[in-house]
């Protein structure tokens, strides 16, 4: 089934915004749950487009990348213990 990209982006954004209230940073896998019918590649493309549009943002430790919703959580506080890059 072909999934409309704008619709998918909307689903991801709604899902992420809801989630951001209690957990401000999510992995790409968490976003898969926004649209179980979409393939991982479709989700990642849509999520990356949302970042380009400024609706989501990347948070990177250098080794791992997470997604956030602008305005939720303070970037300085979000440290996740990494061992390497």
């Amino acid at each position: 089934m072909a999934i409309d990209k704008e619709e998918l982006k909307q689903k991801i954004l709604e899902f992420a915004t809801k989630k951001a209230k209690h957990k401000s940073k999510m992995y790409i896998k968490d976003l898969y749950k926004a649209a179980p019918d979409a393939s991982p590649r479709q989700i990642k493309n849509a999520a990356n487009e949302l970042v380009r549009e400024g609706k989501l943002e990347f948070f990177s430790s250098g080794s791992t990348t997470m997604y956030g919703v602008p305005g939720f959580g303070k970037s300085e506080k979000d440290q996740f213990g990494e061992l390497e890059e």
Partner: peptide, 20 residues
């Protein structure tokens, strides 16, 4: 050093590693 952050260049999600 703090670890990570929201830095990057427009359109890219890699290549820049935030350090504070």
């Amino acid at each position: 050093w703090k670890h990570g952050g929201i830095v990057g260049v427009f359109g890219y999600g890699g290549g820049v590693i935030g350090r504070y």
